[in-house]
């Protein structure tokens, strides 16, 4: 069972690494932010699985804090960065054009 969970953890981390391409390529700010949110969801699952693999219940608390605070980044993005960048920039890329 532990081997199976370890493989799952590895797959989830590989998922994050592949998803980094979305942060790199964009094209819009919202795509990048959603990629980051996908990473925090994956990190929560990785922490939950590690808590069982390593038999460390303290990791459940780390996962709880991470899950709760993931909301904060996306709310800040929607509330502040996104709207202001869109209004000023007007082209919907969030002022973050490809070079």
């Amino acid at each position: 069972m532990t081997e199976f969970l370890s493989i799952l953890v590895l797959l989830l981390l590989a998922n994050i690494v592949v998803g980094l391409a979305r942060v790199l390529r964009g094209p819009s700010a919202a795509d990048r932010m959603l990629a980051a949110e996908m990473f925090s969801t994956s990190a929560v699952v990785i922490l939950l699985l590690l808590a069982f693999i390593l038999d460390a219940p303290a990791l459940l608390d780390v996962a709880l804090v991470l899950a709760l605070l993931a909301a904060l980044a996306v709310v800040t993005f929607v509330g502040r960065a996104w709207s202001e960048l869109e209004i000023r920039d007007g082209d919907g890329t969030g002022g973050d054009r490809e070079p």
């Binding site: 942060v23 790199l24 925090s40 990190a43 922490l47 980044a73 960065a81």
Partner: peptide, 20 residues
Amino acid sequence: LFRSVISFIVFGLLMALAWV
């Protein structure tokens, strides 16, 4: 700059995993 900020947020996320 936005891409840098996102990279930094994800860096913090993975750093938490590294500390684990």
